[in-house]
Nucleic acid binder design. Structure first.
Lengths: 158, 158
DNA sequence: GGTGAAAGGTCCAGAGA
DNA sequence: TCTCTGGACCTTTCACC
Protein backbone atom coordinates (compact mmCIF):
# COMPACT_ATOMS: atom_id res chain seq x y z
CA UNK A 1 0.00 0.00 0.00
CA UNK A 2 1.49 3.31 -1.07
CA UNK A 3 -1.19 5.68 0.07
CA UNK A 4 0.31 8.38 2.19
CA UNK A 5 -2.60 10.71 2.45
CA UNK A 6 -1.22 14.23 1.96
CA UNK A 7 -2.47 17.79 1.83
CA UNK A 8 -3.25 17.58 -1.87
CA UNK A 9 -5.41 14.48 -1.43
CA UNK A 10 -7.24 16.21 1.37
CA UNK A 11 -7.74 19.27 -0.78
CA UNK A 12 -9.17 17.16 -3.58
CA UNK A 13 -11.63 15.44 -1.26
CA UNK A 14 -12.66 18.68 0.38
CA UNK A 15 -13.35 20.34 -2.97
CA UNK A 16 -15.10 17.37 -4.58
CA UNK A 17 -17.39 17.02 -1.58
CA UNK A 18 -18.63 20.54 -2.23
CA UNK A 19 -18.75 20.26 -6.00
CA UNK A 20 -18.26 16.90 -7.66
CA UNK A 21 -18.17 18.43 -11.10
CA UNK A 22 -15.05 20.49 -10.75
CA UNK A 23 -12.79 19.60 -13.66
CA UNK A 24 -9.31 18.27 -13.06
CA UNK A 25 -8.05 21.48 -14.58
CA UNK A 26 -9.91 23.54 -12.02
CA UNK A 27 -8.78 21.30 -9.15
CA UNK A 28 -5.20 21.59 -10.40
CA UNK A 29 -5.46 25.36 -10.46
CA UNK A 30 -6.87 25.66 -6.95
CA UNK A 31 -4.40 23.21 -5.43
CA UNK A 32 -1.39 24.58 -7.29
CA UNK A 33 -0.65 21.39 -9.15
CA UNK A 34 -0.87 20.42 -12.79
CA UNK A 35 -3.57 18.28 -14.33
CA UNK A 36 -1.92 14.87 -14.56
CA UNK A 37 -1.07 14.42 -10.87
CA UNK A 38 -4.60 15.51 -9.97
CA UNK A 39 -5.96 12.95 -12.37
CA UNK A 40 -3.85 10.19 -10.87
CA UNK A 41 -4.80 11.10 -7.32
CA UNK A 42 -8.51 11.32 -8.03
CA UNK A 43 -8.44 7.87 -9.58
CA UNK A 44 -6.49 6.50 -6.65
CA UNK A 45 -8.92 8.03 -4.16
CA UNK A 46 -11.77 6.33 -6.02
CA UNK A 47 -10.04 2.98 -6.31
CA UNK A 48 -9.02 2.91 -2.67
CA UNK A 49 -12.58 3.70 -1.63
CA UNK A 50 -12.14 7.14 -0.13
CA UNK A 51 -14.71 8.34 -2.63
CA UNK A 52 -17.70 6.02 -2.53
CA UNK A 53 -19.68 7.61 -5.29
CA UNK A 54 -20.85 10.84 -6.89
CA UNK A 55 -24.42 11.90 -6.26
CA UNK A 56 -26.80 14.60 -7.38
CA UNK A 57 -28.39 16.09 -4.26
CA UNK A 58 -32.02 16.98 -4.85
CA UNK A 59 -34.27 19.56 -3.25
CA UNK A 60 -36.53 17.54 -0.99
CA UNK A 61 -39.45 19.98 -1.09
CA UNK A 62 -39.37 20.43 -4.86
CA UNK A 63 -39.91 16.73 -5.45
CA UNK A 64 -42.85 16.63 -3.08
CA UNK A 65 -41.18 15.05 -0.06
CA UNK A 66 -42.06 17.68 2.51
CA UNK A 67 -42.14 15.57 5.65
CA UNK A 68 -39.19 14.05 7.49
CA UNK A 69 -39.66 11.76 10.47
CA UNK A 70 -37.21 10.23 12.87
CA UNK A 71 -38.56 6.94 14.12
CA UNK A 72 -37.20 5.08 17.12
CA UNK A 73 -37.78 1.33 17.00
CA UNK A 74 -37.39 -1.36 19.63
CA UNK A 75 -37.26 -4.99 18.56
CA UNK A 76 -38.57 -7.90 20.62
CA UNK A 77 -35.96 -10.40 19.52
CA UNK A 78 -32.35 -9.42 20.13
CA UNK A 79 -30.79 -12.64 18.85
CA UNK A 80 -28.39 -12.45 15.94
CA UNK A 81 -30.96 -13.86 13.54
CA UNK A 82 -33.59 -11.47 14.82
CA UNK A 83 -31.40 -8.45 14.20
CA UNK A 84 -30.26 -9.67 10.80
CA UNK A 85 -33.82 -10.29 9.68
CA UNK A 86 -34.82 -6.83 10.88
CA UNK A 87 -32.02 -5.18 8.93
CA UNK A 88 -32.92 -6.98 5.73
CA UNK A 89 -36.54 -5.92 5.97
CA UNK A 90 -35.74 -2.31 6.80
CA UNK A 91 -33.34 -1.88 3.90
CA UNK A 92 -36.15 -2.71 1.48
CA UNK A 93 -38.37 0.14 2.66
CA UNK A 94 -37.64 2.85 0.11
CA UNK A 95 -38.90 5.69 2.30
CA UNK A 96 -36.25 4.87 4.92
CA UNK A 97 -33.29 7.03 3.98
CA UNK A 98 -31.15 6.19 6.98
CA UNK A 99 -31.19 3.41 9.55
CA UNK A 100 -28.80 3.03 12.47
CA UNK A 101 -28.37 0.47 15.19
CA UNK A 102 -28.12 2.58 18.35
CA UNK A 103 -27.03 2.57 21.95
CA UNK A 104 -29.60 3.57 24.53
CA UNK A 105 -33.21 2.88 25.32
CA UNK A 106 -34.27 2.04 21.77
CA UNK A 107 -32.59 -0.19 19.19
CA UNK A 108 -32.85 1.50 15.81
CA UNK A 109 -33.20 5.05 14.60
CA UNK A 110 -34.74 5.64 11.17
CA UNK A 111 -34.92 8.78 9.08
CA UNK A 112 -38.01 8.50 6.93
CA UNK A 113 -38.81 10.95 4.13
CA UNK A 114 -42.35 11.17 2.78
CA UNK A 115 -44.87 13.53 1.21
CA UNK A 116 -47.15 14.02 4.19
CA UNK A 117 -48.60 12.46 7.31
CA UNK A 118 -50.90 10.21 5.30
CA UNK A 119 -47.89 8.68 3.59
CA UNK A 120 -46.13 8.31 6.93
CA UNK A 121 -49.14 6.44 8.22
CA UNK A 122 -48.98 4.13 5.20
CA UNK A 123 -45.31 3.40 5.79
CA UNK A 124 -45.95 2.66 9.46
CA UNK A 125 -48.98 0.44 8.92
CA UNK A 126 -48.22 -1.25 5.61
CA UNK A 127 -44.46 -1.62 5.88
CA UNK A 128 -42.92 -1.07 9.32
CA UNK A 129 -45.61 -2.82 11.36
CA UNK A 130 -45.24 -5.89 9.16
CA UNK A 131 -41.58 -6.37 9.99
CA UNK A 132 -41.08 -9.41 12.25
CA UNK A 133 -40.43 -8.84 15.97
CA UNK A 134 -41.16 -5.13 15.87
CA UNK A 135 -41.77 -3.79 19.36
CA UNK A 136 -42.28 -0.24 20.54
CA UNK A 137 -42.20 2.50 17.89
CA UNK A 138 -41.91 6.20 18.63
CA UNK A 139 -42.06 8.99 16.03
CA UNK A 140 -40.61 12.49 15.99
CA UNK A 141 -41.18 14.94 13.18
CA UNK A 142 -38.98 17.61 11.67
CA UNK A 143 -40.41 21.10 12.00
CA UNK A 144 -37.59 22.69 10.05
CA UNK A 145 -34.24 21.63 8.68
CA UNK A 146 -31.48 23.87 9.99
CA UNK A 147 -28.46 22.13 8.51
CA UNK A 148 -27.99 19.11 6.28
CA UNK A 149 -24.45 18.58 5.11
CA UNK A 150 -22.98 15.72 3.10
CA UNK A 151 -19.43 17.05 3.25
CA UNK A 152 -17.23 16.06 6.15
CA UNK A 153 -14.86 18.66 7.50
CA UNK A 154 -11.31 17.46 6.90
CA UNK A 155 -9.29 20.44 8.05
CA UNK A 156 -7.68 18.88 11.10
CA UNK A 157 -7.22 15.42 9.64
CA UNK A 158 -3.65 14.09 9.26
CA UNK B 1 -43.66 28.64 -15.40
CA UNK B 2 -43.35 25.96 -18.04
CA UNK B 3 -42.11 23.06 -15.98
CA UNK B 4 -44.39 20.13 -16.40
CA UNK B 5 -42.39 17.47 -14.68
CA UNK B 6 -42.56 14.37 -16.89
CA UNK B 7 -41.27 10.83 -16.90
CA UNK B 8 -38.02 11.79 -18.58
CA UNK B 9 -37.25 14.43 -15.96
CA UNK B 10 -37.94 11.88 -13.26
CA UNK B 11 -35.68 9.37 -14.96
CA UNK B 12 -32.88 11.91 -15.15
CA UNK B 13 -33.17 12.75 -11.46
CA UNK B 14 -33.36 9.12 -10.46
CA UNK B 15 -30.24 8.23 -12.44
CA UNK B 16 -28.20 11.27 -11.43
CA UNK B 17 -28.96 10.65 -7.77
CA UNK B 18 -27.28 7.27 -8.10
CA UNK B 19 -24.42 8.41 -10.31
CA UNK B 20 -23.88 12.09 -10.90
CA UNK B 21 -21.21 11.42 -13.50
CA UNK B 22 -23.35 9.72 -16.10
CA UNK B 23 -22.77 11.52 -19.39
CA UNK B 24 -25.65 13.06 -21.28
CA UNK B 25 -25.04 10.46 -23.94
CA UNK B 26 -25.48 7.65 -21.43
CA UNK B 27 -28.58 9.27 -19.93
CA UNK B 28 -30.00 9.69 -23.41
CA UNK B 29 -29.38 6.03 -24.18
CA UNK B 30 -31.02 4.76 -21.00
CA UNK B 31 -34.04 7.04 -21.30
CA UNK B 32 -34.49 6.48 -25.03
CA UNK B 33 -33.93 10.10 -25.96
CA UNK B 34 -31.20 11.90 -27.85
CA UNK B 35 -28.48 14.03 -26.31
CA UNK B 36 -29.81 17.55 -26.82
CA UNK B 37 -33.15 17.18 -25.02
CA UNK B 38 -31.36 15.54 -22.11
CA UNK B 39 -28.95 18.42 -22.00
CA UNK B 40 -31.74 20.98 -21.98
CA UNK B 41 -33.64 19.15 -19.27
CA UNK B 42 -30.63 18.69 -17.01
CA UNK B 43 -29.90 22.37 -17.23
CA UNK B 44 -33.50 23.25 -16.50
CA UNK B 45 -33.58 20.91 -13.49
CA UNK B 46 -30.49 22.65 -12.14
CA UNK B 47 -31.77 26.16 -12.81
CA UNK B 48 -35.16 25.48 -11.26
CA UNK B 49 -33.50 24.07 -8.17
CA UNK B 50 -34.54 20.43 -8.40
CA UNK B 51 -30.87 19.57 -8.34
CA UNK B 52 -29.22 21.46 -5.49
CA UNK B 53 -25.67 20.35 -6.18
CA UNK B 54 -23.38 17.48 -7.09
CA UNK B 55 -21.37 15.93 -4.29
CA UNK B 56 -18.67 13.33 -3.86
CA UNK B 57 -19.76 10.99 -1.08
CA UNK B 58 -16.81 9.89 1.04
CA UNK B 59 -16.23 6.80 3.09
CA UNK B 60 -16.64 7.97 6.67
CA UNK B 61 -14.37 5.33 8.19
CA UNK B 62 -11.58 5.82 5.67
CA UNK B 63 -11.20 9.47 6.57
CA UNK B 64 -11.03 8.70 10.26
CA UNK B 65 -14.55 9.67 11.27
CA UNK B 66 -15.58 6.44 12.93
CA UNK B 67 -18.11 7.71 15.47
CA UNK B 68 -21.58 9.06 14.80
CA UNK B 69 -23.72 10.52 17.56
CA UNK B 70 -27.30 11.71 17.60
CA UNK B 71 -27.68 14.44 20.16
CA UNK B 72 -31.00 15.70 21.48
CA UNK B 73 -30.94 19.27 22.71
CA UNK B 74 -33.42 21.31 24.69
CA UNK B 75 -33.12 25.09 24.78
CA UNK B 76 -34.10 27.27 27.73
CA UNK B 77 -35.27 30.22 25.69
CA UNK B 78 -38.02 29.52 23.16
CA UNK B 79 -38.42 33.08 21.96
CA UNK B 80 -37.86 33.82 18.29
CA UNK B 81 -34.52 35.49 19.01
CA UNK B 82 -33.44 32.60 21.20
CA UNK B 83 -34.14 30.06 18.48
CA UNK B 84 -32.50 32.15 15.77
CA UNK B 85 -29.39 32.65 17.86
CA UNK B 86 -29.24 28.91 18.55
CA UNK B 87 -29.46 28.08 14.86
CA UNK B 88 -26.69 30.48 13.94
CA UNK B 89 -24.36 29.01 16.54
CA UNK B 90 -25.10 25.41 15.62
CA UNK B 91 -24.51 25.93 11.91
CA UNK B 92 -20.95 26.98 12.66
CA UNK B 93 -20.03 23.72 14.40
CA UNK B 94 -18.34 21.77 11.62
CA UNK B 95 -18.83 18.39 13.27
CA UNK B 96 -22.61 18.85 13.14
CA UNK B 97 -23.64 17.28 9.85
CA UNK B 98 -27.37 17.63 10.36
CA UNK B 99 -29.55 19.70 12.65
CA UNK B 100 -33.34 19.65 12.80
CA UNK B 101 -35.92 21.54 14.80
CA UNK B 102 -38.20 18.78 16.09
CA UNK B 103 -41.61 18.07 17.53
CA UNK B 104 -41.73 16.23 20.84
CA UNK B 105 -39.98 16.34 24.19
CA UNK B 106 -36.73 17.85 22.93
CA UNK B 107 -36.17 20.80 20.58
CA UNK B 108 -33.30 19.91 18.27
CA UNK B 109 -31.78 16.73 16.92
CA UNK B 110 -28.16 16.82 15.78
CA UNK B 111 -26.15 14.23 13.86
CA UNK B 112 -22.54 14.69 14.87
CA UNK B 113 -19.68 12.89 13.12
CA UNK B 114 -16.32 12.62 14.86
CA UNK B 115 -13.23 10.46 15.18
CA UNK B 116 -13.87 9.04 18.63
CA UNK B 117 -15.38 9.63 22.04
CA UNK B 118 -12.63 12.04 22.99
CA UNK B 119 -13.50 14.25 20.06
CA UNK B 120 -17.20 14.02 20.94
CA UNK B 121 -16.35 15.20 24.42
CA UNK B 122 -14.47 18.16 22.95
CA UNK B 123 -17.42 19.12 20.75
CA UNK B 124 -19.78 18.91 23.71
CA UNK B 125 -17.62 20.87 26.14
CA UNK B 126 -15.86 23.35 23.89
CA UNK B 127 -18.59 24.04 21.36
CA UNK B 128 -22.10 22.87 22.24
CA UNK B 129 -22.02 23.81 25.93
CA UNK B 130 -20.97 27.33 24.99
CA UNK B 131 -24.05 27.96 22.90
CA UNK B 132 -26.37 30.41 24.65
CA UNK B 133 -29.51 29.09 26.38
CA UNK B 134 -28.58 25.44 26.00
CA UNK B 135 -30.59 23.25 28.33
CA UNK B 136 -30.76 19.48 28.62
CA UNK B 137 -28.55 17.47 26.26
CA UNK B 138 -28.89 13.75 25.64
CA UNK B 139 -26.57 11.65 23.47
CA UNK B 140 -27.13 8.43 21.55
CA UNK B 141 -24.40 6.66 19.63
CA UNK B 142 -24.46 4.67 16.43
CA UNK B 143 -23.37 1.06 16.88
CA UNK B 144 -23.63 0.29 13.18
CA UNK B 145 -24.93 1.98 10.07
CA UNK B 146 -27.48 -0.19 8.32
CA UNK B 147 -28.59 2.14 5.58
CA UNK B 148 -27.56 5.64 4.53
CA UNK B 149 -29.09 6.79 1.29
CA UNK B 150 -28.87 10.19 -0.38
CA UNK B 151 -31.19 9.25 -3.24
CA UNK B 152 -34.91 9.77 -2.82
CA UNK B 153 -37.20 7.20 -4.36
CA UNK B 154 -39.24 8.87 -7.08
CA UNK B 155 -41.09 5.96 -8.59
CA UNK B 156 -44.60 6.92 -7.51
CA UNK B 157 -44.19 10.66 -7.93
CA UNK B 158 -46.43 12.45 -10.47
C1' DG C 1 -40.64 19.88 -28.29
C1' DG C 2 -37.02 17.21 -31.18
C1' DT C 3 -32.63 16.19 -34.68
C1' DG C 4 -27.92 16.52 -36.24
C1' DA C 5 -23.58 18.59 -36.82
C1' DA C 6 -19.73 21.75 -35.57
C1' DA C 7 -16.58 23.97 -32.13
C1' DG C 8 -14.36 23.96 -28.01
C1' DG C 9 -13.05 21.82 -23.71
C1' DT C 10 -11.95 17.79 -20.85
C1' DC C 11 -10.27 13.18 -19.93
C1' DC C 12 -6.77 9.95 -20.03
C1' DA C 13 -2.90 7.24 -21.79
C1' DG C 14 1.94 7.27 -23.33
C1' DA C 15 6.70 8.98 -23.73
C1' DG C 16 10.27 11.27 -21.55
C1' DA C 17 12.68 13.72 -17.73
C1' DT D 1 6.30 11.63 -9.47
C1' DC D 2 5.58 15.49 -12.65
C1' DT D 3 5.36 17.72 -17.63
C1' DC D 4 3.87 17.62 -22.22
C1' DT D 5 1.37 16.01 -26.11
C1' DG D 6 -2.32 13.82 -28.93
C1' DG D 7 -6.50 11.38 -29.77
C1' DA D 8 -11.04 10.19 -28.17
C1' DC D 9 -14.93 11.62 -25.98
C1' DC D 10 -18.11 14.93 -23.99
C1' DT D 11 -20.51 19.36 -23.59
C1' DT D 12 -22.80 23.07 -25.54
C1' DT D 13 -24.68 25.85 -29.03
C1' DC D 14 -27.00 26.78 -33.33
C1' DA D 15 -29.73 26.25 -37.48
C1' DC D 16 -33.44 23.53 -38.91
C1' DC D 17 -37.53 20.35 -38.48
Amino acid sequence: MSHQFDQTDMGILQLLQEDARLTHKELAHRLHKSVTPIHIRVRRLQEEGYIKRYAAILNQDKIGKSLTAFTQVQVKEHSQEGLLAFKEEIIKITEVMECYHMTGSFDFLLRIVIRDMKEYNDVLIDKLAKVKDIGHVESFFVISEIKHETAFSLHTKT
